[in-house]
Write a protein that binds this DNA or RNA. Structure first.
Lengths: 340, 340
DNA sequence: AAGTATCTTCAAAGCGCTTTGGCTGCCGGA
DNA sequence: TCCGGCAGCCAAAGCGCTTTGAAGATACTT
């Protein structure tokens, strides 16, 4: 059933039927009703390809997904996707994933813009002065950034969590417990989120007159293995930390293993705080010693990004709104006062 | 730059240019070269929407993604996606994710077929007599199943791993080590993969004259928490198992925790084998006691599925080919001879 | 009564591609 | 010399929608 057939059936022109269906004002209410009725009864659905060709709008949102032998998409992505789906599901909004070589994202962005495959995209894991954001801004493709970028020189729509405050508060708590040798096992510090976390910790320490020397920072992929390795090297050094903050639960798993391997205990010897993105399959309260965390649901962020993307498509959101969510500090058994 | 402009520029008809570019035979080699040259020089790229409207082909592959408050997309998905991307990246092949309510996938499948949004889809986590497969078969949308379904009454293209053999071999190994009380902590048994795993274990036990009583089987979501819970209930029962097979590394994490909480040890008191889908962020060799696993890279499967999907699109693969990959049994320290 | 504004509706022109059904010239065979 | 066949090219008709520009109908002014 296409427009032509439907309009013949109703003895109306395609124009009128199209307008009636798309809510244009120059159609009488009665006609609109008749049309809507018939459309529903015959299960008419406009052909998206035709509509796209005519309007240039795709009705889909996109994500340029870096892949490659050396690139591991991490499990955060799937949680974000769940959230996106939560919203999109109810709105017949589809997501186009365009895989790309990690070192050549620009080409892919240009391609999807040229092809008009999607009406908007979301960008994740931004870096300082992120080139993708600058590119999108220049190409005029609507987008929302999950995370933040600094030093771009213009505003852009984004949704981020307050990583700095979260890690600041967590660090301050450790200081209040008397810890002075606090270490940070961070994610990839070329990404903004990691920079903000470090900044938060640093600020808290500074407020107590303490520094965060390079010897107490590690930066690595957020895996169990890297967590283990980083913790090992920290704890085997001289003046080992009595408290560790880390950027992911997977890392925390490795850190706990390292601590245990060294014959130490949480929290007696080492206090541990991790950031929790809220995974259904690994929960901080279920660690052998329940983990204190800074928590923010990445799935909820996905929902919100989808929602904002949708309002952006409909032309309702047009400001480069920056939205920052607070991070919960959830205290559990993995921290204790420093030994005196 | 569109076809019209390009053909004007070359003083050729759109027909000829189109044919030249698409490799049709009725164009002289010289003309073809000229056209190809000009196209490249001016960066001409056919507009996908127009092409789609004209041909009905989308040039994209799809995945109907169940979501919902109670649905957790699990991290296996992201690994599979990485694999898909590995292949797709080099072929400008995009993936359309259509989120759907978990209990209403049929509507979504019908929608994407009606809309001609994608040329083929892949189906994951199949169940016995999976209705999605029957539906796709009936609708005539090309597809490939990652996994298998039984009792459908027709052949369909799929790629699966040999779950039965993998778990059979693992169970046999445990039997050879003298274990007689072997338990299975499985995933959701409404899915085929779990059924095959159970079948494999059962067959191995039967060969030694042993059974797998319901009291030694657990089935649950593949999370740390459920692994813990299942292991607890098994080990606290009477005649607790001396060996456990489980369906995922996340579960294994919980099982190890349970064993430890009960003051038992791996492998002294309990031997443990898990299935490993090969995640970059959690490796069996890095468990406190390195884990024996049945291993198969889900990422590699993603690559292969993408590849087959692509050959299917190009019309080269047309048989309902079923491809079964062997599963590696990787022995590590988590198993030992049963106490006598 | 003519003129003007307001509703409704429509025919037709795109959007940019593929594909059908010719048409033209050239060659070899009869 | 004529004709059938073939290689190479083209004009035009879709694909199914949106949107422009106009026209008919009705109501309202003056």
């Amino acid at each position: 059933m296409n427009l032509k057939q439907l309009s013949n059936m109703l003895a109306l022109s395609q124009t009128t039927v199209s307008r009636a269906l798309n809510g244009y004002p120059e159609v009488s209410e009665e006609t609109r009703r008749r049309v809507a009725d018939a459309a529903k009864r015959h299960g008419y659905r406009p052909n998206p390809s035709a509509r796209r060709l005519a309007t240039g709008k795709a009705g889909m949102i996109g994500y340029v997904m870096p892949t490659g032998a050396s690139v591991d998409i991490d499990p955060h992505f799937v949680e974000f996707l769940s959230g996106l789906g939560d919203y999109a599901r109810g709105h017949e909004l589809d997501l186009v994933l365009s895989p790309t070589a990690a070192d050549d994202e620009e080409t892919t962005y240009r391609r999807i813009v040229a092809n008009k495959q999607v009406d908007a995209v979301y960008v994740s894991s931004p870096r300082p002065a992120d080139r993708r954001i600058a590119l999108l801004n220049q190409l005029g493709l609507p987008f929302i950034v999950h995370g933040r970028s600094e030093g771009l020189g213009f505003d852009y729509p984004h949704l981020d969590i307050d990583n700095e405050a979260g890690f600041h508060d967590a660090a301050r708590l450790l200081l209040q417990l008397g810890h002075t040798r606090v270490a940070l096992i961070n994610g990839d510090t070329s990404q903004t989120f990691a920079i903000f976390r470090e900044r938060g910790v640093r600020r808290a320490l500074a407020a107590s007159g303490l520094a965060l020397p390079p010897a107490r920072i590690r930066s690595a992929a957020m895996t169990e293995e890297e967590g283990f390795r980083a913790a090992m090297s920290l704890l085997r050094g001289n003046e080992p930390p009595t408290a560790i903050l880390c950027s992911s639960l997977m890392m925390a798993l490795g850190i706990v293993r390292a601590i245990r391997d060294l014959g130490l205990a949480v929290p007696a010897d080492v206090s541990l705080v991790a950031h929790d993105d809220v995974f259904p399959w690994l929960k901080p309260e279920n660690f052998s010693v329940p983990l204190t965390t800074t928590r923010s649901s990445i799935r909820a962020a996905g929902q919100r990004v989808a929602e904002r993307l949708a309002t952006r498509l409909s032309g309702q959101e047009t400001e480069p709104l920056g939205e920052i969510w607070p991070v919960d500090l959830v205290v559990r058994a993995s921290i204790a006062a420093a030994k005196t």
